[in-house]
C-alpha cells in the first residue's frame, strides 16, 4: 500500500527554509565561521510559527513573524529577539536565559553586525578547533563583556549576527575574548 510520490519536489519556500536552516545549523555549530544567509527574513521563515514568541524592532520583521502565527511580545518574554543594530547593551539583561532545568528556554538573539571592520575577537569552545580569531563590528561597546557577565552556563542566550547576506553564530557555549 502507499502510492509512491512521482517525484517529490520541494516548493521554493521549502528550499529557502531548508537552506536557511542549514546555514544557521552550520553557523551555530561552528562559531565564528561565516555562512551565506539572506537576512532576517530567512530566519523568520525557517524557524517562526505559532509556537513561538517574537520581539522585533523592525516592523517588517515583526509583521512577517506575526503573519506566521507568532505572538509579538516584549524583549524579556520573547523566544526570538530580532533587535537589528543594537544601540546599547541594555537589552541583554532583559533576555530570557532559561533555567538549569530548561536551558532550551533561553532566547535567540538576532543582531545586525559587520564582519569587515571592528573588534578583533578570539572565540573558543565547542565547534571551534582550538581558538578562532574573527572581526566583528557594529555592536555597542562592552557587548561581549556584558554577555559574559550575564550568562551562567548552561543558562544563556544564543546569538546570530547578520551582515548583509552573511551570518555568524555565537552560541552560549562559546567563550569570547575581545582583544
Amino acid at each position: 500500500m502507499g502510492q509512491p510520490l512521482a517525484s517529490p519536489s520541494p516548493s521554493p519556500a521549502e528550499l529557502r527554509s531548508n537552506a536557511a536552516f542549514e546555514a544557521l545549523l552550520w553557523a551555530l555549530s561552528r562559531p565564528g565561521q561565516l555562512r551565506a544567509l539572506e537576512g532576517e527574513g530567512a530566519i523568520v521563515e525557517a524557524l517562526i510559527d505559532r509556537e513561538c514568541t517574537v520581539y522585533a524592532t523592525d516592523p517588517a520583521v515583526a509583521r512577517g513573524a506575526e503573519r506566521l502565527g507568532a505572538a509579538l511580545v516584549g524583549a524579556g518574554e520573547a523566544d526570538y529577539v530580532f533587535a537589528g543594530a543594537l544601540p546599547s547593551t541594555a537589552l541583554l539583561g532583559e533576555l530570557k536565559q532559561g533555567s538549569d532545568l530548561h536551558p532550551e528556554e533561553g532566547a535567540t538573539l538576532i543582531l545586525a553586525a559587520g564582519f569587515t571592520a571592528g573588534d578583533r575577537l578570539c572565540l573558543s569552545g565547542p565547534g571551534v578547533d582550538g581558538a578562532l580569531s574573527v572581526t566583528v563590528g557594529g555592536l555597542p561597546a562592552g557587548f561581549w563583556a556584558r554577555r559574559a557577565q550575564l550568562m551562567r552556563y548552561p543558562m544563556g542566550f544564543d546569538i546570530f549576527l547578520c551582515d548583509g547576506a552573511q551570518v555568524m553564530g555565537v552560541p552560549r557555549s562559546t567563550a569570547v575574548e575581545a582583544f
Binding site: F21, L24, L25, L28, S29, A46, L47, E51, C52, D79, P103, E104, G106, T108, G127, Y153, P154, G156, D158, P171, R172, S173
Partner: peptide, 10 residues
C-alpha cells in the same frame, strides 16, 4: 529546527 539549534548551543 528550533530544538536542534538549542541542542547545538548546549
Amino acid at each position: 529546527r528550533r530544538k536542534m539549534l538549542k541542542a547545538v548551543a548546549v
